[in-house]
């Protein structure tokens, strides 16, 4: 009579100490990842509180009057938003042809060894701190490039726009180059097989195939241009008066924030100040946050929605 030993299934769960450590490590890492949610919440909360104080204290009708002069209690959102639009518009006019041209060249034309030299150089340009480009825009672009051609003040929005444009060229170039390199080789080969020339293949086949990534790159660059501070703070000056042309000084959204932050405009006169100018900083910050967030989400949507699957 055979006695079968009670079958104990082999314990595969391992050393309980190791398991505990595993769980500890895992939860530690989770906390680090979840911290990003706390940061987002902190941004929104810290902005919204003070911004609300501003909204309740300032008559919305005055948003559309002329002049961002916190010292005199004048908060023209129109002024700073228009100046921001001008600067980022000029920046896009500068960065789009340069960035896309560079991207197409690097992706389609450059030989491997040329590319290996040119790409890092473009990355160096991306690494130049914005305060350096601000200095360059103020002390080189304005006197040597703009003023000989166009009667502009020493501080002007045009120089700021060009400076910001230079700053975002590497972003446009690298993101859209990635998009174009992701286009499968078969597409190019099919185009050549039909007798198309190199330029035709690059511009009429590869470029349209990568258009979702390219549009996303441009939206991302616009978002960066709107949020860029130091170039504008140095090159565009501190005038809070509305100007329709980029030939004179003007505060943008970020410029107004920098100006308030360094306190050059914090001197409150006894008259007409019913709101703490510092609160307006948070209101503009919140606007900036929302605008850039919408643009970033939009850029991601464009990629996901219009990407061609190969």
């Amino acid at each position: 009579m055979s006695v079968t030993a009670p079958q104990v299934p082999m314990d595969l769960s391992g050393d309980p100490r190791r398991q505990r450590r595993e769980r500890r490590v895992r939860s530690l890492f989770f906390v680090a990842a979840a911290l990003s949610i706390i940061i987002s919440a902190a941004i929104v909360l810290s902005l919204a509180g003070e911004a609300w104080g501003f909204v309740t204290a300032v008559d919305p009708a005055s948003y559309f009057e002329n002049g961002w002069l916190p010292r005199r209690g004048r908060y023209s959102i129109l002024t700073i938003v228009w100046h921001t639009l001008m600067v980022s518009g000029i920046a896009m006019v500068v960065a789009t042809p340069l960035g896309l041209g560079a991207a197409i060249y690097l992706s389609e034309y450059a030989r491997r060894n040329v590319r290996r030299f040119l790409k890092p150089t473009l990355e160096i340009l991306a690494g130049v701190p914005s305060v350096v480009l601000g200095f360059f825009a103020l002390n080189f672009i304005t006197p040597n490039v703009i003023q000989p051609l166009y009667a502009a003040d020493r501080s002007n929005l045009l120089a700021a726009g060009i400076g910001v444009g230079i700053l975002i060229v590497p972003l446009v170039a690298s993101v859209s180059e990635d998009a174009m390199r992701a286009v499968p080789r078969a597409l190019r080969e099919a185009s050549y097989g039909l007798g198309a020339k190199k330029w035709h293949t690059s511009l009429r086949v590869v470029f349209p195939a990568a258009i979702s990534g390219i549009v996303a790159a441009l939206i991302l660059a616009l978002s960066r241009a709107i949020g860029e501070t130091m170039v504008v703070a140095l090159a565009a000056g501190t005038s809070g008066i509305l100007t329709w042309l980029p030939d004179s000084s003007g505060l943008t959204m970020t410029g107004a924030m920098a100006d308030l932050a360094i306190g050059s405009d914090q001197v409150t006169s006894a008259t007409a100040v019913q709101v703490n100018p510092f609160q307006s900083l948070f209101f503009v910050g919140l606007m900036l946050f929302v605008i850039t967030l919408v643009l970033n989400v939009l850029s991601e949507r464009v990629v996901r929605r219009y990407r061609q699957k190969y």
Partner: peptide, 25 residues
């Protein structure tokens, strides 16, 4: 998914807004 999206969006927040966060917090 939410955390990943959130991190990507945080990377796009203008640096001066982080200054406001630093100031408040």
């Amino acid at each position: 998914q939410f955390i990943t999206t959130n991190i990507r969006n945080l990377a796009g927040v203008p640096s001066i807004v982080y200054g406001l966060l630093g100031f408040s917090v």
